[in-house]
Design a protein around this nucleic acid. Sequence first.
DNA 1: TTTTATACTTACTTCAAAGTGGGTACTTAC
DNA 2: GTAAGTACCCACTTTGAAGTAAGTATAAAA
Lengths: 131, 131
Amino acid sequence: MERHDATTSPFPPPNVNAAACPSRHVLEHVTSRWGVLVLAALCGETLRFSALRRRIEGVSEKMLAQTLRALERDGFVRRVVHPVIPPHVEYSLTPTGREVAERVSALARWVEGHLPAVLEAQAHYDARAPE
Amino acid sequence: MERHDATTSPFPPPNVNAAACPSRHVLEHVTSRWGVLVLAALCGETLRFSALRRRIEGVSEKMLAQTLRALERDGFVRRVVHPVIPPHVEYSLTPTGREVAERVSALARWVEGHLPAVLEAQAHYDARAPE
DNA sequence: TTTTATACTTACTTCAAAGTGGGTACTTAC
DNA sequence: GTAAGTACCCACTTTGAAGTAAGTATAAAA
């Protein structure tokens, strides 16, 4: 009745609070500066590289490519290349990717929806703790 | 019947895809390397500074203090100082903080729970795209 | 014919995030 | 009397994340 059977799994259960646990790295990919925005953008929509670039204001080509590669490696993003000229590459979410993306974009939408309250809290904090 | 009334609100609605939108910064606090772990740790539990430090393996005192200050400023974390010696400071979530933290820790738990699948995807990716 | 668009990669640079080590002020335990 | 725990702050250094600019090959549009 163990929650984690040491006979079948000799490793400790994944724990993001453990510095060496690979789950922490995966979480970092997902919550990275551009990773969050890429996942949220692909949530429910297939997009091409340049469409993603236009949608996410401020990403450089380098960072977008790098972010997409990490998410593809983690199995969250599917990359489909149409061998035509000019190049045509489509990015979409895998089933697991959709699960993460839904949570990530729920977070993003929550933040957008509650911005006024946060801004007010910031102003209040700054008012009583100057400089 | 506008979704966003230009008469009463002269500003565009918050959008994390806009580089200059403050919501992007707030999202970055929340999804920052240590911000995620602090919010997840405080989800459902009040903790002291040093308890947090012990729980989140690898945080330096500097980064923990800095992360907590940012989250407090955003109105997500409540800081209660008991003026005794040695110092006793408790950190907990505000009502809004709890809402964010629930989403953040849901994400963290999802990643922990699906680590094996991600690791497998990584191995598969690395196998067909060497070096 | 020059420009634009596509989807990148590579090399180089910059800058902010993060780590390191010190100090503080006081108390309790050893 | 020495060490450890508490909750930090400050200055300095390091590292890695990110920005910049260029190159690639091709075709269609202007």
